[in-house]
Design a binder for these strands. Sequence first.
DNA 1: CTGAAATTTGAGACTGATTCTCAACAAAGA
DNA 2: TCTTTGTTGAGAATCAGTCTCAAATTTCAG
Lengths: 162, 162
Amino acid sequence: MPDTRERDRFLQFLRTRGLRVTQERLALFDEIFAQHKHIDAEELLAAMKTRGLKISRATVYRNLDLLVDCGLVRKQRLGRDRFLYEHVHGGQHHDHLVCTVCGRVVEFVSPGIVALQAEICRAHGFQASRHTLQISGLCNDCAGAQPVLQSVGAVKEGAARV
Amino acid sequence: MPDTRERDRFLQFLRTRGLRVTQERLALFDEIFAQHKHIDAEELLAAMKTRGLKISRATVYRNLDLLVDCGLVRKQRLGRDRFLYEHVHGGQHHDHLVCTVCGRVVEFVSPGIVALQAEICRAHGFQASRHTLQISGLCNDCAGAQPVLQSVGAVKEGAARV
DNA sequence: CTGAAATTTGAGACTGATTCTCAACAAAGA
DNA sequence: TCTTTGTTGAGAATCAGTCTCAAATTTCAG
């Protein structure tokens, strides 16, 4: 069980807040740490049902927010209408490239950008608590396959990768 | 009328697409170029009604998308649930600092970050069409006034600047 | 200027993600 | 084990944004 550290952190978080350690919370934790992609609440719910776990939609949403507060999960809109969740491992912050055709999400890390952001915050007397950088466009595959017709926003999100 | 250039561009856009120049489209154009802040569709609708203009919600949404396609308006979620729109003037791309307490939005420009983004795209064979960088945290005023208690997300968005 | 053809509009129904409500249930601790 | 109190589940509610379709408006040929 490689997620022991995170699991402990979650338990710690619950206790210090006087929250209860429920079956559902543990199951949700396990599920999202078993997933290695950006996933939305509905998919998460479905995945858990498939495994025979009983949990309701409301509980999934409620506890995802809890995991976000705890800092173990990141919640973002990556080009879609719904939120996508990803568990945070080591803690290295990364940003995203999102393909507007196939929906593929590529993560990247840029210390340079992080440094510049810090500088900007300093210049504006702004105390940053988080940031999101999202670059959307065409991924390698889709750029090759597509004609260069792209009227902005013409292609609706969420299509499967062709 | 300082927005003549943009207005012409819009008319041009409509004609080359075979779209009609309607009262509602012109009124919406005027309204959003009269606004000098990030504004959502509902506020825009209200502002127009206040001026005695008759226009429906559906039309506002439809034509905002048109203005976005035309490149004259930018549509983004800045920390809120709904989209905020801002008209694009000169064309210089900027990013945003968003205060999680008072909702204040500060714009900034960083050529350095833009350059790094381009580099990242090159490295990943990604053909970017747009990007959004949003830094959220506490603005100068709110950082001073707040106790350091901030449970993430405790303060709901949308409060006016106090 | 006039009428036909075709796009737009408006009112309200609809959608889909997310949140809320509240009675039944399950942790925690004495 | 019993009590207290936070949590869950089912479904209603919410809310931004979209869709439908008849009525209105724009275009343009005549």
